[in-house]
């Protein structure tokens, strides 16, 4: 009856649920100046987490962009985030994709690896197993392009680390619901 979402310091037990979840929110917005700042400002102003954020125009004629935010927190906090986002005037819809868990997510990463001899062949072999593409090569380096769920990219990066990982550039997650319907 009295489970508290409790962002307030007035809860001396800080009564938040222990559960900490990661959710993917898909936010359809009017593509107007400042809309990204509104979204990002909401997260910073209210102390919510952003694990990744992507934005791009998705329907030019209607002037719509989609922002995909990966956020984490207690389930009540994530519900709050959705409602707070819905208050932003140029936002059309906010969909918490994780709630139904019927969605696909992809991220693109470019991974630079430096090495010679045995390390070089090992990197190539692993990239094939992960279906990464080589998009740049020198005698002592590769850049791999890899698309997949974030976990897959994390795994690949971890494998490359001891081989000679130089740096990584990732796009953040884009996501969409499965099946024939709109989000």
């Amino acid at each position: 009856m009295n489970a508290q979402a409790a962002l307030s310091p007035y809860s001396s037990s800080a009564g938040k649920t222990e559960r900490h979840e990661t959710h993917v929110l898909s936010v359809l917005v009017d593509n107007e100046p400042g809309v990204l700042a509104r979204v990002v400002g909401l997260f910073s102003g209210r102390g919510y987490n952003i694990e990744s954020l992507t934005v791009a125009e998705v329907a030019h004629a209607q002037g719509l962009s989609r922002i995909t935010v990966v956020t984490s927190g207690a389930p009540e906090t994530i519900e709050q985030i959705s409602h707070q986002l819905e208050r932003i005037v140029p936002i059309h819809t906010v969909t918490d994709l994780t709630l139904d868990n019927a969605f696909v997510q992809r991220e693109l990463a470019m991974i630079k690896v430096r090495g010679k001899g045995e390390n070089r062949t090992e990197a190539l072999r692993l990239s094939e197993a992960f279906r990464a593409r080589v998009i740049d090569a020198t005698t002592e380096s590769f850049i791999f392009e890899l698309t997949g769920a974030p976990k897959k990219i994390d795994d690949f990066v971890e494998l490359m680390r001891p081989i000679g990982l130089v740096e990584v550039s990732r796009t953040g997650v884009a996501a969409i619901t499965r099946g024939p319907l709109e989000m």
Partner: peptide, 30 residues
């Protein structure tokens, strides 16, 4: 509310509000 974890501990709560983000923000309602 004062101290939240001692706020009206035995009650069922109905919340009527025009702003969905006000609901379950600090106190969970029934």
């Amino acid at each position: 509310t004062g101290r939240l974890d001692a706020f009206s501990p035995g009650s069922q709560k109905i919340h009527i509000d025009i702003d969905p983000s006000s609901i379950n923000k600090t106190v969970m309602v029934d």
